[in-house]
Computed example of a mutant assay.
Amino acid sequence: MPVRVVESSSSSAPSQVSGSSPGHALPPACTLLSVGQAFAGTQNVSSSQKDEAWRVNVRIQGCDLDHGYLCGTMEALNVPLADTPVVTFWEGEVVDTKNYTFFTGKWEATSEDDIRHWSKFPSFVPFLSQVEVDGGKSLDLSNCPYIFMRWKEQYFVNVGPDCGLTIAGFYYVCFSCIDGTINGFYYDPNSSPFQKLELKSTNEGRSGFSFSSYELQ
């Protein structure tokens, strides 16, 4: 949910897979990617004018890996233009080659944008050549210890759209099933490029503490 800054782009073929082979296996099950799990960390929103990072909390609110879907809330705590922490609701697409591929096909992201962002994750590099061919449709990710996703913020939960921030873009996300860490890069052709999201799983909510509650509609 960064501040708007620059340029524009175009879309490419959609990432949702239709008619995929029934032999495609789902990503590995992971107890750290489940409803109620919380994550905390930072999002680097630095620009050419200044260095800046926001503290960020994320909580998983829904998870349906069979359909490549998950959703949650994201809370940015020290946003300069906001008087209160800014909370957004996001929905995610899991790259499982059954429901979604590595190609986004919307939100102004071209296949070149996809390759450029996914390639920033070292865990993606072994898949690069096949993704360049068909978005990774023929890949088997069932034994991969990482889960690749896209997170798209849908609306502001506790502030209005005039809060000075934008949710026009989306996040390329890599989740580690090994230690529960999340790395991501925000993409919006009108915002500073490659804003990095770094989160670690926490016990919040599972040990009696939780974020403020919000009514999601």
Results as ranks from 00 to 15, higher is better:
182 I>Q: 06
158 N>L: 04
113 D>Y: 12
81 L>V: 14
182 I>C: 03
122 P>Y: 05
176 S>N: 09
134 D>E: 06
120 K>E: 09
66 D>P: 12
96 D>N: 13
109 A>R: 01
49 Q>T: 10
84 T>D: 14
113 D>P: 08
122 P>V: 00
163 C>S: 15
138 S>F: 03
184 G>K: 01
174 C>F: 04
56 V>N: 03
97 T>G: 04
150 R>E: 03
168 A>P: 07
118 W>I: 00
113 D>L: 13
109 A>W: 00
74 M>I: 14
62 G>L: 09
171 Y>M: 09
104 T>C: 06
94 V>G: 04
105 G>P: 12
129 S>F: 06
94 V>I: 11
95 V>G: 13
176 S>R: 03
49 Q>V: 14
123 S>H: 11
87 V>G: 13
91 E>A: 08
53 A>C: 02
89 F>Q: 05
94 V>P: 04
81 L>Y: 12
53 A>S: 07
97 T>I: 04
85 P>I: 01
52 E>G: 08
135 G>K: 02
160 G>D: 09
88 T>G: 02
139 L>T: 05
143 N>W: 05
153 E>K: 12
56 V>D: 02
77 L>V: 08
139 L>E: 08
102 F>T: 00
175 F>E: 03
112 E>W: 11
179 D>G: 11
103 F>K: 00
92 G>E: 13
115 I>R: 03
72 G>N: 04
140 D>A: 13
173 V>E: 05
167 I>P: 00
115 I>T: 02
73 T>Q: 15
62 G>I: 04
111 S>A: 15
61 Q>H: 08
171 Y>W: 10
76 A>M: 11
126 P>H: 02
101 T>V: 06
144 C>T: 04
175 F>L: 11
59 R>T: 10
148 F>T: 01
63 C>L: 13
174 C>S: 06
125 V>W: 07
100 Y>I: 03
113 D>N: 13
119 S>Y: 07
59 R>P: 05
61 Q>A: 09
81 L>D: 15
76 A>R: 10
77 L>R: 15
75 E>I: 02
123 S>A: 13
88 T>I: 03
161 P>S: 08
138 S>M: 12
116 R>Y: 14
77 L>E: 15
76 A>W: 08
109 A>I: 01
69 Y>W: 12
127 F>D: 00
154 Q>K: 13
74 M>Y: 11
89 F>K: 02
134 D>W: 07
115 I>N: 04
123 S>M: 06
72 G>R: 00
156 F>C: 06
163 C>P: 10
78 N>P: 13
62 G>A: 12
146 Y>G: 03
117 H>F: 12
83 D>V: 05
148 F>K: 01
169 G>Y: 06
51 D>R: 15
135 G>V: 02
55 R>N: 13
120 K>T: 11
101 T>L: 08
69 Y>Q: 11
